[in-house]
């Protein structure tokens, strides 16, 4: 008797799951995709950025600005360290603990490297410049880290600091609505603007 009743619930369960799969698993996401493609197609497709017809990235996704040898390109603003090396197919953080020896060593090395690259003292290097983001794809840096890089970029490009600073200001966002989140500089768009205004090489 009990087995029979359980059997009846199992049949109802199979039927209920089928209905849910069709309505919630197909109709709902497909309808939302349709709506998204109508109301905000560019955003729904990943806020892609194109130059001369070819996709160079997404304004939301960070990328590295290093040469083939892995060294930073002097004429571009550098993004943060990334646990995934800005691989869009493998997002994630380092997950190293706050006392991890590996992380202590990495932070130390990065501080020295960032200081040397920009010709500043190590204690002027801001925290976001030496720590990896949670996504591994952080598109932004702090205004402090951008400020640190202005002189280097201007010198590498042979242009005035004021011109570079003006672009940095243009691509700096405050907190959303003045109080949500943190101020940040949109690096890909900033570097694209540098590229368009002053060319690929310095």
């Amino acid at each position: 008797m009990s087995a029979l009743r359980s059997g009846r619930q199992l049949v109802a369960a199979v039927r209920a799951l089928l209905v849910a799969t069709v309505v919630l698993g197909l109709a709902y996401p497909l309808l939302m995709t349709g709506v998204a493609q109508v109301i905000a197609p560019a955003r729904a497709d990943g806020s892609l950025v194109s130059v001369e017809g070819s996709v160079v990235g997404s304004s939301l996704i960070g990328q590295s600005f290093t040469g083939a040898d892995g060294d930073p390109l002097q004429e571009y603003f550098q993004t943060r360290p990334s646990a995934s090396d800005y691989d869009g197919a493998a997002s994630g953080g380092s997950n190293l603990g706050p006392n991890s020896e590996e992380l202590v060593a990495a932070v130390g090395e990065r501080r020295a490297a960032v200081a040397a690259l920009n010709g500043v003292a190590v204690d002027e290097v801001p925290a976001d410049a030496v720590t990896a983001s949670g996504s591994g794809l952080d598109p932004d840096i702090s205004p402090e880290y951008a400020a640190l890089q202005v002189v280097r970029v201007a010198e590498a490009r042979g242009v005035s600091m004021d011109d570079v600073q003006a672009l940095v200001d243009e691509y700096t966002d405050g907190r959303d609505l003045g109080f949500i989140g943190a101020p940040h500089v949109r690096v890909l768009e900033l570097n694209l603007a540098l590229h368009e205004r002053f060319g690929a090489e310095g």
Binding site: V104, G108, T131, H184
Partner: peptide, 21 residues
Amino acid sequence: AGGAALQLAGAATEGQEVRFG
């Protein structure tokens, strides 16, 4: 920002996104 690595960095930004803070 407790922890040796985070203190060296200056803030608990490991694993954190700049836009969120």
